[in-house]
Design a binder for these strands. Sequence first.
DNA 1: TAAGTAATTGCCCTTTGGTGCAATTGTTTT
DNA 2: AAAACAATTGCACCAAAGGGCAATTACTTA
Lengths: 226, 226
Amino acid sequence: MSVLRNSRQAISVSDEKLAARCARGRVIVIDDDVQILAALAALFELEGYACETYTSALAYLDILNFPSPSFPGPCCVLCDIKMPGLSGLELQRRLASLGDTPLLFMSGDSGAQEAVSAFRAGAIDFLIKPIDVDVLLASINRALACSSECQQAQIRRDVLAARIAMLTERERDIARRVAAGQTNPEIAAKLNIALRTVKLHRQRALEKIGAGGTVDLVRIADEVGL
Amino acid sequence: MSVLRNSRQAISVSDEKLAARCARGRVIVIDDDVQILAALAALFELEGYACETYTSALAYLDILNFPSPSFPGPCCVLCDIKMPGLSGLELQRRLASLGDTPLLFMSGDSGAQEAVSAFRAGAIDFLIKPIDVDVLLASINRALACSSECQQAQIRRDVLAARIAMLTERERDIARRVAAGQTNPEIAAKLNIALRTVKLHRQRALEKIGAGGTVDLVRIADEVGL
DNA sequence: TAAGTAATTGCCCTTTGGTGCAATTGTTTT
DNA sequence: AAAACAATTGCACCAAAGGGCAATTACTTA
């Protein structure tokens, strides 16, 4: 039932459907039990999500090393905590430095200690087997919603950061001062340059950043820094 | 060893020391085992924190109902999860609606389920007995630091909210529009009032809010709303 | 009823912000 | 060396922001 997909596969005719599913949400399931993988994959696909399955944490990490073009959309990882090779908690440590994909754990007979470690390290949820389907789906929904938000915010930050990167040193400096509330004459005095020069840099900075006015600039400065 | 303190007690000569301890951090310990309470209280007092102990969740909630003047400072609750009467998780539910005091749980033989429930409901940590003293203190430190941050932010928001509450409807409306980037002439046109009037309200709003300029107003508006 | 508060407006003046036009200088890239 | 980019400045003009002064109107409160 379950189809193992990785992002390296060639573009095929089924990609349209896959893209649609990915847009809704992509669930990455990692478990050494193939039966469970199959069952979960079937469940998630039935719910309209895209699903990728891996039989080990390493297999998943391998895929991540190929920054292949994947369909956009929210994404979360559902991972068994007890697996041969890399355990779930170890995977979590390695993922932490990479991105901000929400991580959910599944556990059979683990004690409280593992759950605590998982949450401390930032896990978004910890599901104890036997897992209720509704609870699982609700949890996955939360995780995907969280991922979606993060991604949107990240995209916005990236766009703005790219624009800010286009500023020259002078422009950035003056934009910073403007965002700090300094007036043009004040800035001119501080930098020992002509008022006209300040105005010019200020204007250029606003243009490059794409801020409609000073008010926008302040918000952008507070959001992504300058 | 441990001294049970509640905020209703009369001001006494030892209050200076207590105030100093509270400023460093106040740990509220709830456990039905008096031995443990005594030991923890001794530990925390030794570390320079103020410590209040309660033998049941209800006893603590009772105290909260008397909004008595307490010394300011960061504060956290360390609570056994398994207690007669109100359990730790039930206490958590009731506290959630009250304030944002960080909550830490202690647990002897609880399963993962309780830890998961605690974290889902926002617990800041979950300590499994036997508890390592260093781990405990580190966790308490995190919680108090968190509390401190929250309190500072809350105070700031309260101050600003109080100022904003002094605005008249007109002033608030115009401040909103200014924060949204509208110019005085635009606002005047929208509201069908004279430019001079807009300027006056704008000026008054900035004064009352205590914003040095438009830049400040934008930040305040984004932080506490208008 | 008198005082106080809030909203309103006009006139006038200064400071800031926003731009166009034109030009100079130094550095970097092709 | 020519072209391109960044920083700089002067002059002039207009729009917007910030206030001072004075006055009117409507509504609420002591």
